[in-house]
Nucleic acid binder design. Structure first.
Lengths: 237, 237
DNA sequence: CCAAAAGTGTTAACCGTACACCCATGC
DNA sequence: GCATGGGTGTACGGTTAACACTTTTGG
């Protein structure tokens, strides 16, 4: 007997939802969409959508990000699949959650209004529909966990950035503050930054040197572990 | 306009697959099932199944483990969702992969033959159907990654175990060997083990003390990070 | 000249690793 | 009594973290 079909099994909708993080220089932000139709009209949700018949969940997430930000090749990590039977009251839907990290300056303008989307401070985002608040919690934990050892937060910064900006980014994620001498020594000893001659002069009289990522070393890291966070057990999970 | 249904979207099957690890005292093993029906007859696969209409993927994984091992409350981590459109040639199926850690001595007997299941040495498992080899690779990486900092490998050992057994377990996972003096100092300083008076005398004349987990401290770890692996960057990812 | 932020060096504590010998027992 | 595996302590080196002053320049 050859099985050519799986009879009697339940088919269901499969969606992806993206927790899109940005950093404005001082605070972590998250991109949320306001639903324009019932039954969730005016409520906020993550950016998401159903997956199509001929694409993977990763492709679906990239497609949705392209549509909402105009951006291709966004940094994406699949983090968890949410499957409670009642999570979408309309119809059973499984959702695969992704963390997306984008440079907030590049995409800010095109998005807002076009899709009813808005950046929110992570700490005062509105309550979201379905289990999207759980997804955001999971994403925050994931990001803290992974960033303690992997250099992925650079995805949130522009091409050129200063050490004080980078430090503010880490301090924002872990809601703590670091000694700047130790921080700069550590991050520079990782050997993935190149100092430019140019200085950023907006936020101080003296000006801070711009740095840029050494793409070779970043993409082929000899040492994937950064350890920028002292005492990770204080902050991670 | 109220939306009461999602029209025009593709419904699909959702499955779970479990990468079930065991440790026989010397080697890591993995539990595989031999398919008894076409079109994959005689080929090996992971333990899995479709999820039902009224359960989460976690519940489905527990249900399948209960059926195949008789065991409830097995240690389970959701690791990744596999969604390539052609991964199951019969019909499009999304699969959520789980790592399961079980005490091989407890469940060995009931399983074998009942479900055409068998333990294989991880290093010489047969080729598996679909993308199950990818799942096993992902699971191995996940386990190395997580075990470097979290005390989860105890799930693979019986109630009572010796330090040499515990060390062999870690050495097996990372395919390396550790200095036993450093290893025992580290693991004991974590404060989650209780030494019993009893000794294990099978594998040596002198006998090795049995230890057991301090459940309180294990379940409410003050310090979740073990750091049993020196130079994690050598071994992890 | 003063305020504000950037940049830089030293020291002490701790952690990680290497390393070697004695112990207990069954044969 | 000897072979086998179990158990233990020390010392060195590297890493981490704590700490304060000088530099630059716009106003």
């Amino acid at each position: 007997m050859k099985i050519r079909s799986y009879k009697g099994q339940t088919r269901m909708l499969v969606a992806v939802d993206c927790i899109i993080f940005g950093f404005d220089g001082n605070n972590f932000k998250i991109l949320l969409a306001q639903k324009s139709f019932a039954p969730e009209k005016d409520k906020y949700s993550l950016m998401g959508g159903f997956i199509w018949a001929e694409e993977t969940v990763e492709e679906a997430a990239q497609r949705i990000l392209k549509r909402l930000t105009g951006l291709e090749g966004v940094y994406l990590d699949q983090i968890h699949t949410f499957s409670a039977p009642g999570r979408d009251p309309v119809e059973r839907t499984i959702s695969v959650a992704f963390v997306a990290l984008i440079d907030i300056h590049k995409y800010e303008k095109q998005i807002i209004h076009e899709y009813n989307a808005d950046w929110f401070l992570l700490q005062d985002k509105p309550k979201l529909i379905f289990d999207h608040d759980d997804m955001v919690d999971t994403a925050k934990k994931y990001l803290r966990y992974k960033a303690a050892m992997h250099p992925l937060l650079f995805e949130l910064l522009p091409e050129k950035f200063t050490l004080p900006q980078l430090q503010a980014l880490y301090e924002g994620l872990y809601e703590t503050s670091f000694d700047k001498r130790n921080f700069s020594r550590k991050v520079l000893s990782a050997g993935i930054l190149i100092r430019l001659d140019e200085k950023e002069k907006e936020s101080s009289k003296k000006g801070a040197y711009y740095f840029t990522l050494d793409k070779n070393k970043y993409l082929n890291p000899s040492k994937d572990f950064l350890n920028l966070i002292p005492n990770p057990e204080k902050h991670v999970y």
